[in-house]
Design a protein around this nucleic acid. Structure first.
Lengths: 112, 112
DNA sequence: ATGATATACCTCGCCTGTCAAGGTATTATT
DNA sequence: AATAATACCTTGACAGGCGAGGTATATCAT
């Protein structure tokens, strides 16, 4: 099942931060990783992705730099900041809480 | 931890439908139930709730009727339609997929 | 050479769900 | 008379997602 982004709205920043803690990366690569890790179930639309980078950088959660010139198109790399790490920790807690809340609200309850 | 609605955006309809399959209910009651079932971690803002009812009814997922006159303020009751049931089944599947995808993307991986 | 495909980045403007703020009305409590 | 709880509703602003468009480099097939 392919997921719509409306369902994951608000989780975009957390997903990006989580990919970046594994090491600096760039837009195209991050998106490919996301698609692979979800078995093709999810991927960002480009506009969403670059909008998110801009937002994250403006909020001081990531920093960016141009990759060294090599063959192929230029790449802008992103790195998580300390604030980004802290935010990710919060987001992870929030996600656990989201699961708890949603399961309490929409799951099947045989006994109820 | 109190959850912001931005995190649950897109899940509002599913949450409401899930409450209604247990029996017809009205706005105020549904919201109280949601707050109770989540231990106070989540509740709809009124504007969100009534906007959602309108949307759900326009999409044929619920129907509404005024409760019989009794003491206290009038109540508008809502009932799930067949289409609403089908939609909820989809939403539940989608939620399971969401959990899988999010866990794959943001969880701690000791071994990775 | 020419076109297609993959890589790689970016912006503009629309759409949609959330919600602060405002409103109405009934009943019970202080 | 005032306050709180119950119960409903609308308007306008805001923010994130994204369709559509643009730019540029490199590879591969025709």
């Amino acid at each position: 099942m392919a997921l719509s982004a409306d369902i994951l709205r608000g989780h975009t920043d957390a997903i990006i931060l989580a990919q970046l803690v594994a090491g600096d990366s760039y837009g195209y690569q991050i998106n490919k990783t996301v698609t692979e890790r979800t078995g093709g179930a999810y991927g960002f639309k480009e506009a969403t992705l670059y909008t998110a980078f801009k937002r994250l950088e403006q909020n001081g959660l990531i920093t960016s730099y141009w990759g060294e010139d090599g063959p192929g198109a230029r790449r802008r790399y992103y790195a998580v900041t300390e604030a980004g790490m802290a935010k990710l920790a919060e987001d992870r807690q929030e996600w656990n809480e989201t699961k708890r809340v949603m399961d309490a609200l929409i799951s099947w309850k045989e006994g109820l």
